[in-house]
Structure formats: C-alpha cells, structure tokens
C-alpha cells in the first residue's frame, strides 16, 4: 500500500486556482521531489497535506486512512513529520529540549505540571541527535544555532514520532552545496532504513536530480509531468516552463 495517496486535490484563493486536481502517491522508503516555478502551488499543496490548509476538493489518505482536512496536530499524531522552508524551532530551548518536546508530545505527557523536564529521561532524544550528528550541540540554545544545524534539528524533531511520511519544504534552501548533499544523503539513508516515504520541494536541481527517486512537476497549480529524473529532465514542457536551457 502506498504511504500517501492524493487524489484530485484543489484549492482556490479569492477566485484564483492555486492547485487544481493534483493526484499522486508516495511509496514507503521513496524520495519524491515536487518542483515547479514560484507560485506554482507547491507550498499550497504541502500545506494541504499536513492540514494547515483545508482543500476545496480532493482526498488525502495516509496508509489507507482518510486524513483530509484534519488539523496539523492530528495529522502529526497519525505519523506525518514536517520540516519548514524557514526553519521553525523553539528558540528559547536547547537543541535537546526541542527534540524532547516532540517526544513528550508523542507520549502525551505535555500536560505535566510537576516533574521538571530537566529531570526526565532524555536518552531517546540524545540517540536521535547522535544519529543526525548533532550530539555535541545538544546543550546549545536553538536561538543561536547556525542555519544548517537548525535544519538538522528540524529533521530530528520531525523524526521523533517515528513518522511514516516526511514532508520537507525546501530542506536545503540557504545551505552550502556540501551541506546540501550531506543532509539529503542522511535523509535518504534514514528513509530507506525505516521505510519512511519522503516528499520534498526543492529549488536546487542538483539536489533534486541526485536524490529524488521520482519527480513531480507543478505549473500553475497542475501537474505537468511526473516520472523518473531522466525522463522529467528531458521533458520539453518542463524545460520550457521551469528548467530553462541551463540544465
């Protein structure tokens, strides 16, 4: 069964159709890239998948369960981790505490009024940070972290509830080329190892062509191509609206 299945997703804003009839599926362990020009509807699409936006039409299934229109926190509980284009972490907490928050929330222990967080078991959070090469930064406040490291913290948070699906909105935006390769290789490794389906948007075509198993191309809200990287790269329509002559 596909991890994520999307059918006929559509959304308009004030009469402008941002997304029209988008359908696709992601398999466990698959890296699927969503590309397209600015304003093509990528972010809108993403926000409908994790519940930040309610679609006008269409259905979203996660492992066969209909999750259309559920609130983001419900979608997360069902197994969808997410990273944001502009990193969103808790700046007043340390790296470790950031990850611990996700774990505590997963265990439904965030209502606690008595036992201090510092006195709680942090081994699982430390293990997760070690897996992402962030063990040494665990005690640093997130507010002063370098951008590339913040992206890793976000990934650690997103992985904390053992998600079936990872949504990554421009995971490497603002990173140096070497860091991009390292982060995507790490993501791909974890995805395969745990059978996580990954859907990501990306502007860096080198990253896309190097790491995506499959590519979807969105233009003016509609899918204009999908398939293996080589086929998409050769598609004349994709070259015209998006890739240009350079790639």
């Amino acid at each position: 069964m596909a991890t994520l299945e999307v059918e006929g997703l559509a959304k308009s804003f004030g009469g402008v159709q941002a997304v029209r009839g988008v359908s696709f599926a992601v398999a466990p362990g698959e890296m699927l890239a969503l590309i397209g020009p600015n304003g093509a509807g990528k972010s809108t699409c993403f926000n409908m998948l994790n519940g930040q936006l309610r679609p006008d039409a269409g259905r979203v299934w996660l492992r066969g369960q209909d999750i259309t229109g559920l609130a983001p926190r419900r979608v997360w509980r069902l197994g969808v981790g997410r990273t944001f284009q502009i990193t969103a972490t808790f700046g007043s907490m340390t790296v470790l505490e950031n990850v611990q928050m996700a774990l505590l929330s997963h265990q439904r222990r965030l209502g606690g009024l008595w036992t201090p967080v510092r006195a709680m078991d942090c081994a699982p959070a430390e293990a997760l940070l070690a897996r992402l090469g962030m063990a040494e930064q665990a005690e640093r406040p997130c507010g002063i972290l370098a951008y590339g490291d913040l992206k890793r913290v976000e990934l650690a948070i997103a992985l904390a509830n053992d998600p079936a699906l990872l949504l990554m909105d421009e995971p490497t935006a603002g990173m140096a080329p070497q860091e991009r390769v390292a982060l995507m290789a790490l993501t791909a490794g974890i995805a395969r190892e745990r059978g996580i389906a990954v859907l990501f948007t990306e502007h860096d075509m080198d990253v896309v062509f190097a790491h995506a198993d499959r590519i979807l191309v969105l233009d003016r809200g509609a899918l204009i191509a999908q398939g293996a990287p080589a086929a998409v790269r050769a598609d004349p329509r994709v070259r015209e609206v998006y890739l240009g002559a350079g790639h």
């Binding site: 397209g36 020009p37 600015n38 935006a173 502007h203 075509m205 609206v241 998006y242 240009g244 350079g246």
Partner: peptide, 10 residues
C-alpha cells in the same frame, strides 16, 4: 538568485 526558478535566474 535565491529561491528563483532557473529560467528567472537566467
């Protein structure tokens, strides 16, 4: 050029 589609970058 950040965040722009390759055609716009050109």
């Amino acid at each position: 050029s950040e965040g722009l589609a390759p055609v716009v970058v050109e």
